[in-house]
Amino acid sequence: MKRLAALAAAALLATGPALAEDWPSRTVTVVVGFGAGSTPDLLARLVADGLQEKLGQPFVVDNRPGAGGNIGLDAVAQAEADGYTLGVTIPGPLIVNPMRMELMYDPGTDIRPITMLGTQPSVLAVNAELGVETLDELLEMLRADPGAYNYASIGVGSISHLAMEMVALASGTEIEHIPYTSSPEAVAAVIGGEAQMATMPPLAVLSHAAEGTLRLLAQTSGERMDVVADVPTFAELGLADVQAEAWNALVTTGGTPDAVVETLHDALAELLADPGMQERIAALGFQPVQMTPAEFEARIIEETPRWRSVLEAAGLLHE
């Protein structure tokens, strides 16, 4: 009986209010707005694993795919501001989509940026059976048969969406947009023929390009990135507007205590500086990056007008 009482007391103690200083004292959820197997998902799993080891509590990845990542970021925005819900996001839901549509959350107040984790180029890949070898040939093909082609994307507001809208603009024709919820799904659609082209993370297309089922025409980064060194940039090919890095970043709920953010940031800084971790991140096609929350916030502010002009050019700006 005494033992039972002691156990009951222990159970009671375990439920006391969580203090920010004690963070993390239970499982932390890392929400990803894309399907399993997508690059944000894989990066999130890698980082979650590292944080788990550093901080001693389970970090579990929770996929909430859909609407270009907005659904996942919304889940982070609506969570308790206690640091037990983190999110891995791309620029779309954080910067682009708030300018494109009404959202349930305001990234400025409902989301607290922590750090960028890595950046990657996005690569324009076409189904090899199209017989198109270069971006110019693709544009010609689009012009010859306007409105006949589809492109796949990982969702609205992503680089995979906007880059293709810019290509459409350059061709002077329309390409039908078919959104998916992860890069493997979108790539499967291009290989299967449901769509003819897609701008995708390198990891999603490289093995298929090696098989000969996809052909890589251009990449979105400012300079050629190592993983796809033989693919020209859009800028080299005369489409200077299509220049963006598909970075992935870690965020949490707006209003999360500073103590939590600091603990998290310190653990991340150590983690991302580890050569083993950098190697693993690079294996996913990413260039590892790390910054302080303040630097990341500054970067978001700096990128906003660039995205705005892209949206304006593509006619996608929300009034």
């Binding site: 399993a36 197997g37 998902d41 890698l46 493997p184 990891l203 999603a204 093995s207 298929h208 996913l284």
Partner: peptide, 24 residues
């Protein structure tokens, strides 16, 4: 690389963590 549910997704993650990329 298209997993059907949470456990299969975890398998995919385990593969990629070890540098093995699912593909044809």
């Amino acid at each position: 690389g298209v997993p059907g549910d949470a456990v299969l997704a975890l398998m995919l993650g385990a593969l990629i963590i070890h540098g093995i990329i699912p593909g044809p």
